[in-house]
Amino acid sequence: MDKRTNEEWVADLRAGGDQQAQALEDLRAIILRGLPYAIAGRIAPNSPESEALTEEVVQETLMRVLEYLDTFEGRSQFTTWAHKIAVRAALTELRRVRWREVPLPEMEMNDEGDASYRELPDSQASPEEQVSRAEMMKRVNRIIMEELTEKQRMAMTAIMEGFPLEEAAQRLGTNRNTLYKLMHDARLRLKKRLEKEGLTPREVLSVFEQSGK
């Protein structure tokens, strides 16, 4: 039965015994219908990895639903709330699997790295535009060095390299929520410093958007 009202879901899950067991079984079936949306395109469907992940996520979701049942305020359908928990659990695991072999971007830059920089393909910008971009890059780099902490720089490097916030947070010994706050503080500091120097982010952006690549 998955046509319970929110109140019925909460009551059944709190009831214990057979009533709770039946509700958990019904909720399990509902979560299983939603999980393919989280897994699609991330790991092969119907693979052993997919089946193992699905089972792990369902178990974790049911445990969390029971643990946090008192926090459900009824502002959405109960099943949407449960799906939300399942999606977070699934994505957390999928990100961990996807990024576990990828080291955080190296902080050191050697001579070889400098050389590869020079060998990279150039854009089609005019020489004048290239000069203004280089000058702007230098200016912004200086601001970043002066305004951000080492952790903020490391996080920014990781995020620019495509790391999920959650995964970058774990590598940096923090959690996603705290890292978001840290990055918000970093963005605010950079934005205010640019303003002090008479620049807006859009003006800087325009320097790098000029002409084609």
């Binding site: 290239q130 000069v131 280089a134 912004v140």
Partner: peptide, 29 residues
């Protein structure tokens, strides 16, 4: 070390403005 981090972020390298190395790679841009 901080400077190295930023160099890695945007691959900025000190060059004279007119030098060919002044050109910014597309991914850094």
């Amino acid at each position: 070390k901080f400077k190295q981090i930023i160099q890695r972020l945007f691959a900025f390298k000190k060059q004279s403005p007119a030098s060919p190395q002044n050109k910014i790679p597309a991914d850094k841009s």
